[in-house]
């Protein structure tokens, strides 16, 4: 296994294997905290920190972890960084901490992180593992932000707390309730699968066109 870092390793998580829109992982924090764009971004950054740090550490220790205790080791490592993030957010803003509630601690069981540790970091040197983790977390961040911004715009008429429609805006209460999360996620999934299919159709048309000419 060479230590070369491919561009694909980075972009994989952002688009082709996007954890939210393609793998549909990590839905629990996704649906619960994306009530506003700021909450979503904080969650995204917290997950990013945990994912990158834990991937690095797991990758560093990959040669000495016996496979019988690997899950336990990964969980301990992940939990450590989650605790660190927990303290950091408390130190930055208590308000944000209250808004995110238990979901900071629940990053421990976010399957994206354990999945990356198991599938990628434990098999690759630290640099590619971190790059891959960074790409994944950017993908997750994009997903969270896509949900959070739509829900905040419809649910409160604001984006990052800035009013978009003036004071007469009628908030869609359902968007800040849990069902709203499902609706918006469904909408985005629909959008991305439609895009994917269109791309595929264009490719087949191109192929058909080429073979027709030949």
């Amino acid at each position: 296994m060479s230590a070369t870092v491919t561009w694909d390793e980075f972009t994989e998580g952002i688009w082709r294997q996007n954890p939210v829109f393609v793998m549909v992982l990590g839905l629990c924090p996704m649906l619960a905290v994306t009530v506003s764009a700021v909450n979503a971004m904080t969650m995204g950054l917290a997950t990013m920190f945990v994912l990158v740090c834990s991937s690095a550490l797991v990758s560093l220790m990959r040669k000495m972890v016996p496979k019988e205790v690997r899950i336990a080791t990964y969980i301990v490592i992940i939990a450590t960084f989650v605790t660190v993030v927990d303290y950091l957010i408390q130190a930055v803003s208590l308000e944000l901490y209250e808004a995110l509630g238990a979901f900071i601690q629940l990053i421990v069981v976010n399957c994206i992180i354990l999945g990356r540790a198991e599938a990628h970091a434990s098999k690759n040197p630290p640099l590619p593992a971190m790059i891959n983790a960074l790409g994944m977390s950017i993908g997750f961040f994009i997903g969270l932000f896509a949900l959070g911004s739509v829900r905040e715009i419809l649910g409160a008429g604001t984006l990052f707390g800035v009013s978009l429609f003036g004071s007469g805006f009628q908030p869609w209460v359902i968007m800040v309730l849990p069902p709203g999360g499902f609706f918006v996620l469904g909408g985005w999934l629909l959008f991305f699968s439609w895009m994917g299919r269109r791309k595929q159709r264009k490719q087949t048309e191109k192929l058909a066109g080429v073979s027709g000419h030949a």
Binding site: Q170, W172, V173, I174, M175
Partner: peptide, 10 residues
């Protein structure tokens, strides 16, 4: 049900 949840006042 959707509008009831979205616009409870109206």
């Amino acid at each position: 049900a959707f509008v009831q949840a979205a616009f409870p006042t109206a």
